[in-house]
Amino acid sequence: MNRVIPGLPLSLGITLLYLSLIVLLPLGALVWQASGVGLERYLAIMSGGRTASAFQVTLSMAALATLFNAVYGLALAWVLVRYDFPGKRLLDALVDVPFALPTAVAGLALSALFVSNGWFGAPLAALGIKVAYTPLGIAAAMAFTSIPFVVRTVQPVLEDLAADVEEVAATLGASDWRIFTRIIFPAIFPAFLTGASLGFARSLGEFGAIIFIAGNLPMKTEVVSLLTFIRIEEYDYPAAAAIAATLLGLAFVMLFLVNMIQLWQQRRIGRGD
């Protein structure tokens, strides 16, 4: 690019100043507060039954929600890219609902659907399945709020997929399933993995949608974000700092993973794979 266009010092200055004040200062304060806790106390906080249980239920339900969205999101992206049918544009717009809808509203709606006399809760109760106020409710809330991730990462890659390789394979007599597993899926896999990771990361930190439907029982249906919130309300700042810093660390790990996947994807594209 160039040096003719003016405004670099001003725009860069504003950007750096703003990010420092709004993003880095608070995150730094969190790290500062957490580092004051000390290793021994940190380990005691993290291994405490309630904290450990919160992490366990959060991680396992986030995994379950991600699994659901991996399948549903892939099918949704496929249907949106490959087929034309009435209502396709509406379906495409609906995908963004979880991003646009406030999490508290989503949680409220899901709890209304899944309570024992709700539209979903009543038939499920007849089958002996309880969702509201159980860990499954947590998974449902996480799944709802992270629906768009897999769809929106896979969709553009699937759109760009050249038809010729598929056609050659078909001419050579490969079955649809074989073409999908050997040619199409490998091509969209990095994007798919990126979307699933982003959705998983989002689920780990989800709060608003969950607390309406989870029941929030300590040791059973209390997620990490809620426990952090409770520690703050109890003025137990060391515990809140330790848990929040751990969650922040997990977010950075996920971010690193996603970047690695994207590097891998770029290298594959560069190779003409």
């Binding site: 995150l27 500062w32 507060q33 930190g205 952090t228 919130f229 700092a241 922040l248």
Partner: peptide
């Protein structure tokens, strides 16, 4: 990438 709860706690600190 950061949970809103973390953001809130960070501002508190």
């Amino acid at each position: 990438s950061i949970s809103p709860i973390i953001a809130g706690v960070a501002y508190l600190f």
